[in-house]
Structures are given as C-alpha cells and as structure tokens.
Amino acid sequence: MTRWLANHARALRDALDRLRHPLIPTALSVIVIGSALALPLLLHLAARNLATLSGQLDAEPQLTLFLDTNATETETEAVARLLARHPAASTVRFVTRAEALADLRTSAGLGGSVDDLGRNPLPDAFVVTGREGDPTGLETLRDEAASWRKVEHAQLDALWARKLAATVRVGRVAALLLASLLGIALTAVTFNTIRLQILGRRDEIELSKLIGATDAFIRRPFLYFGLLLGAGGGLAGLGMVALAVATLNRQLSGALLLLGGVGGFSGPAISDAAAVVGVAAGLGWFGAALSVGRHLRRFEPS
C-alpha cells in the first residue's frame, strides 16, 4: 500500500517535472485546450443567461386589446362581454389608463419623464391570456378583435419570448455539439503531446523495460501528465471565460439597467467550473491512455 502510494507520488512528481520542463510547449497546449473549452462554456453560459432572462420577463403568451381613448363606459363593457363569451380567452383583466401609467412610472424607472408628459397618453386595455394547449386561439381572437368597435389595436405579446426560448434551445444544442467536437480536439492535443513525449523518451522507456519496469509503471507518469495538462487547460478555459464575462458585464451594465431587475451576465457556477476541470482532466487522461497504449507497443521484445 505504501509502495503503491510511493509509486503514484513519484509518477505524479515525474509528470509535474515533464510539464515544467520544457515549459513553452506545455503553456501552448494549455492555452489551446483552454480556448477549446472556453468556447462551448461561453455558449452554454449565454444560453443559460438568456433562459433566465426569458423566465424573469413574463413569457406567458398574452393578448392586449388597446381601446380607443375616447371609448365610453358602455362601449368598454361591450368589449368585455365579447371577451367573456369568447372560447379562446381564459382570463381577462381590465387595466385602466391610470393603472397603466402608474405601472410604467414604477416598473421601467421612467418616473420623471412620464410626469413631464402633462396628460396621460395611455388607453384603457384588456389583457387576455389564452387557454392552455391552444396556442393558436389567441391569434384567432386577435384577428377577430381587431374589427370590434372601439378596439384600436390588438397586440399578441410573447412571440418574442417564444423566439427567445427557441434561441436558447438552439444555443444549448450548439454548445453541446461544440463541446463534443472540442472534446475530441482536446483528446487529440493530449494524444499528440504524449506521442512527442514518448518519442523524446525512447531511450528511457527502452531502458526502463530492460531493468524490469512494468507497463503500468512506464504508463503512469504519462497518464498523470495528460490528466494535469487537461486540468490545466480546464483552469485556463475558466480563466478566459471569467475574463470574458467580466468584460461583457462592464459593457452591458448601462444597457441592463434599462431592462430593470436583470442582474447582469452570470459567470460559471462552482459546479460548472468543477465539471469543466473534471471533464478536461478526464479527457486529458483518456488522450494520454490512447497515445501510450498505441506508442508503447513498439518497445515490446521481438
């Protein structure tokens, strides 16, 4: 057991030596792996931030009927009756022009400029939600309501939300695809790095075999090397992403204030970070194992 531990400790130390010496190729590999990981991670974060955003901004499809500003109470009641009878309408809420103004003043932080208007420019409105499982009902209602008396304008919201949701889905799939592709690239990078290492250490490997080293013994430092290279690349990737997120947030801070309540582009969570480093380390190990398995065979006695 202690011998096993000592063997692994030595292999780890060997691997660290090989990473440090020479340093430049290691640094280059780490940067290549880091950028390969940063790309899908950024895409994944973008998708997640968009999803959060669309969750915060009400994504329930709703139809808003804006009434003519000169509509009388009877005319308004007529519209309300038509809505109450309509099969596509689930809930109907009446928003007076005063409520709409107050809402605008508080939610969008436009208080001062609204007061400057002098008089309320907003109309009364009905806000209608559709029945569940009937996505086209509200569209039919919109087309019909547009011709009702005193309905100035019928607007179906949340189309943008659906588009956003679709974008998020595409973004997630793209991130996954990109991650798989770049995972292969990462494996290839370690594979090749280890291949070069093995070629550079032919004499040592050959001699090790002659003095009774097992394959596991010879393999181990290379595997640790791949593992550390992958993990290093993972950390580099996280660093690049953190830098990108910080830069983005500085650029966005003004714009996000306008949207209200949106806290900015969030970076990778601890679990994301751990997953990235873990997966990168695993792929590094895998690439090394493939390479060592393939290239050590030529040292067998004939």
Binding site: D203, L207, I211, A213, T214, P301
Partner: peptide
C-alpha cells in the same frame, strides 16, 4: 508471456556493451 518479463528482469543486473546511460 510479456506480463511476466518485467518481474523476471528484476532478478538480473545488466551491463550493456553500449552502456545505455541516459544523458538527460
């Protein structure tokens, strides 16, 4: 078999005609 060879070799001390020293 190839698996047994490393353990066999540990019983040997080998002096090579070309030394096989590592120069690094």
């Amino acid at each position: 078999g190839n698996r047994g060879i490393p353990y066999l070799r540990r019983n040997f001390g080998l002096v090579f005609q070309d030394h096989k020293l590592l120069h690094d």
